[in-house]
Simulated assay, not measured.
Amino acid sequence: MIDTSIGRWLPFRSRRRTPESFRPRGTSSRISRLSARYDAEVDAALQRLWPKARIYHDREFTRDRADFLLVVRGRGVMIETKVKSDPGLFRGSTLPPLLDRLQRDGRRLVVLVNQGDPTPARDLISTKLGDKGRILVWSGPHHDTELRQAVESLLQQTTRHA
């Protein structure tokens, strides 16, 4: 029997790919770069708005943990960032595992989207978390006021962390 698989005959295909070289499912490298840049901008904004706060950034890609934990005056709010490549609707299809976990834990959440209309996701967050969740479009310092208001309103609801 003759091997007709072209991949076995090409020399550059002979390298084995390690799991680290795979892209996260459904995420293009362009979106990954945009996401990393957006996370850095959000981190800078959190430091700018709450200079005395502790900011924890989850560097591991997971669907059930938020990207940031912001602890201000002993109270915490989870921050999830979402990057869209187009200005259309943000439906929040990747949010349910995170929302389910936060619903069980009783945590507060702010979802930041770089662009688009978050109305469908706002309904999803409201259904799962009620008044413990917020979503807003944040694309730079000109949206800092909305970010501060969303986080501060949740901080007033939160019980102290140990």
Rank of each mutant, 00 (worst) to 15 (best):
Ile2Gly: 09
Ser5Phe: 08
Ile6Arg: 05
Arg8Phe: 10
Arg15Leu: 09
Arg16Gly: 08
Arg17Leu: 14
Arg17Met: 06
Thr18Gln: 12
Thr18Phe: 01
Glu20Trp: 11
Arg23Asn: 13
Pro24Ser: 02
Gly26Pro: 05
Ser28Ala: 15
Ser29Val: 14
Ser29Phe: 15
Ser29Ile: 15
Ser32Arg: 14
Ala36Tyr: 03
Arg37Tyr: 04
Ala40Glu: 15
Glu41Tyr: 07
Glu41Trp: 01
Glu41His: 12
Ala44Leu: 13
Ala44Cys: 09
Ala44Lys: 12
Leu46Gln: 01
Pro51Ser: 01
Tyr56Ala: 12
His57Arg: 15
His57Ala: 05
Arg59Phe: 07
Phe61Asn: 13
Thr62Tyr: 00
Asp64Leu: 07
Asp64Ser: 10
Phe68Met: 05
Val71Ser: 02
Val72Glu: 04
Gly74Arg: 10
Gly74Val: 09
Gly76Leu: 02
Met78Ala: 15
Glu80Gln: 09
Thr81His: 04
Thr81Ala: 04
Asp86Cys: 07
Pro87Asn: 14
Pro87Ala: 10
Leu89Ser: 14
Leu89Val: 13
Gly92Ile: 11
Leu95Pro: 00
Asp100His: 04
Asp100Lys: 14
Asp100Ile: 15
Arg101Pro: 00
Arg101Met: 14
Leu102Met: 01
Val110Tyr: 00
Leu112Asn: 01
Leu112Trp: 02
Gln115Ala: 11
Gly116Asp: 03
Asp117Pro: 00
Ala121Thr: 04
Ala121Tyr: 02
Thr127Phe: 06
Thr127Ser: 14
Leu129His: 10
Gly130Trp: 05
Asp131Asn: 14
Asp131Glu: 14
Lys132His: 07
Lys132Gly: 06
Lys132Cys: 11
Arg134Lys: 12
Arg134Pro: 06
Ile135Glu: 00
Leu136Lys: 02
Leu136Met: 13
Leu136Pro: 08
Leu136Glu: 06
Ser139His: 12
Pro141Thr: 07
His142Glu: 09
Thr145Trp: 06
Ala150His: 03
Ala150Ile: 01
Glu152His: 03
Ser153Pro: 00
Leu154Ala: 04
Leu154Gln: 03
Leu155Phe: 02
Gln156Met: 14
Thr158Val: 11
Thr158Ser: 06
Thr159Gln: 02
Arg160Asn: 09
His161Thr: 05
